[in-house]
Design a protein around this nucleic acid. Structure first.
Lengths: 204, 204, 204, 204
DNA sequence: CATGAATGAGGCTTCATTCAT
DNA sequence: GATGAATGAAGCCTCATTCAT
């Protein structure tokens, strides 16, 4: 029974992976369940043994994707040490490279955004994104606070705002990289962070 | 004849406006042509007198929207004066408030992003966005250069990178505002810009 | 008023000619009223001032076409003289060349056949064709009778059958010419008629 | 698996038969896919599991029909024996009666002709007909050659022309029978062939 | 468990026809 | 008379979902 459970979980992941691939290639609406089944190497009907509907599967892909990103990011972050600036730099590099690996999956993110604006999953997606961003902002906020506490950053900065904007910048840099092949997100983000850190620095 | 031309143009705009409304509410795929016709108060077939297909209409909405945003922004920007910092501040405020006005249309932007990742319009959208971002980045770059030229900003900043990131930040702030009702994009952007300007400042 | 009537008739012919052209190119169903109007150089709505419907126009084209064929054929036939065999030969040549001229309009004939098998005009077309064939058969029958009366043809031939078959052969030869560019209807029909005439000949 | 293949083939035939019925009744353009599904006793969508489009199905009907005619004819023809004249007579009877059986399907032939003149299937149909006629002409040519070789027919006849015309005559006789209920294709063709054979006969 | 044949609701699009100008 | 903008009925086709095997 435990084995069966495991089997089931594996099969589920197999479908999700296949779905992620097809969704990212064609978008949600242009994706056909048959294609997902084909990609997963299973029968069309089998998908419905594991997911109630196309939308359900899509949301499962979203959850799988968030987790994946988070895991990659947090893995590196655990190694954070040094000054707040150094930590931010490492975080920046970590995010950039981790997203870079899943670059071809960035279209998925856009699909998720789109799904949260229309689609009947709107609320589920909106909430999930809301929480995701909150988490990221909270994490960056902590780093900023750490900098203030250690007299590294000025104490008059608006932590929340800077955190929110910074988190957003990372997203947006990827967005532009998506639209422009020649755009280099790693350099851009590094250069930008340097300036920002100067602005944060405490010159008593 | 001139009258007829004008009529045609008016009718076209009428359809685009209606389409924008419905697309932003339901997304591209979930939008039904009949709904657009209903919203525009015309017959279904009439749309096809003005647009070759649903996708064509969607792209027309995109163009109309871009133009609209641009117009609103450029209007304020023309009044720019003062130091580079002041100008950036004004630009920030202008963008924030202009986008704020079309806040309920922000979902459209997400749809456009999504369309540029899947859909058969992929290339058209990608190109258009590419150019749009290029333009914005170029404009911000000019302001930064202006600051450097006037010894207001440090000369060692990477103009391109900062411009790109800043433009992105504005997008991203709106994205977060979309996911979080309580998120205040105006304050956030202002606070953030303040820090950034400190980072740019030249303290010889 | 008389002038007006004439105008009306001219306009009607203009439309019919244009319609014949478009129908023969695209077939009835694939023809769009707008194309006919374009070909005729008039407005779409104008057609309806002269013809009640698309089907009506189509039937008018049929009548115009029949008349045209008939006129061309009968013109030459009036010059018939000599033996019955000679007359049949002349008729054969006349038909072949007259149809040859309207070769690119042969597709129209196929459309007419098709229309008489389906379409709501079925009965009208069937009747018209019925009469057309009857007429042709009757004319050929007369020639055959003439040959018998002059002891040129055997008296035991079944006039009706031979006439019907011969009339059909002419049609069918054009049909094959339509399907096969390299098929030469003139030679074929001549060769064939020669054999047939030998079969008809009276060798007391 | 073999069973499944068989099932699929049966279902395909079932659809083709139903389609043939509806197409012959209403013509290609006036036929609605839903009617075919109804006639076949299946769902609308099922047709598309077996045929890519309406046009594809139509062509499949054509192929099915050609084969059917050919099969019926060739069955009788295999029994050919006796003089060339006798063989031609038998062939004539065989064709007449076999087509007679499918008389109510003759409208299909007209639709096929029409389809080869317009419609996007033009080329496919034209080619198919071209080959079909070629085959028939070739077969009749062989019979004529046989007659010449056995001194039964005159050696100066133009085999190709006579064969082409004769094949066409059979078609055309059916055409007239279609337009005229009182027209008897069997008698007509017999009477006509008798005359023709006299013309072919060798009276050294 | 897995499958894939069957389905029918639903969407995009076409186009003959009308009618106000 | 002539026009062409407007229309909505109707048709082809797609595809998520089901269910018998």
């Amino acid at each position: 029974m435990v084995v069966s459970k495991k089997r089931k979980h594996e099969r589920k992941t197999q479908i999700i992976t296949a779905a992620a691939c097809v969704f990212s290639k064609n978008g949600f609406s242009n994706t056909v369940m048959a294609d997902i089944a084909l990609e997963a190497g299973i029968g069309k009907g089998t998908i419905y043994e594991y997911f109630k509907s196309k939308e359900d599967l899509f949301f499962a892909v979203f959850e799988w994707f968030s987790l994946k990103i988070e895991k990659t990011a947090s893995m590196d972050v655990s190694k954070l040490s040094g000054t707040a600036s150094e930590r931010l730099m490492v975080l920046n590099d970590s995010l950039m490279s981790s997203w870079f690996e899943t670059k071809d999956m960035f279209t998925l993110v856009m699909e998720f955004w789109s799904a949260s604006s229309s689609s009947s999953l709107r609320e589920r997606f909106k909430n999930a994104f809301h929480n995701l961003y909150k988490e990221y902002r909270y994490f960056v906020s902590s780093l900023l606070q750490y900098g203030i506490d250690h007299n590294e950053f000025r104490s008059d900065i608006k932590i929340e705002s800077v955190a929110a904007a910074l988190v957003g910048t990372w997203d947006a840099i990827f967005l532009q990289a998506w639209f422009d092949e020649s755009f280099d997100p790693i350099t851009t983000s590094k250069d930008f962070l340097e300036v920002l850190l100067k602005g944060l620095a405490n010159h008593e």
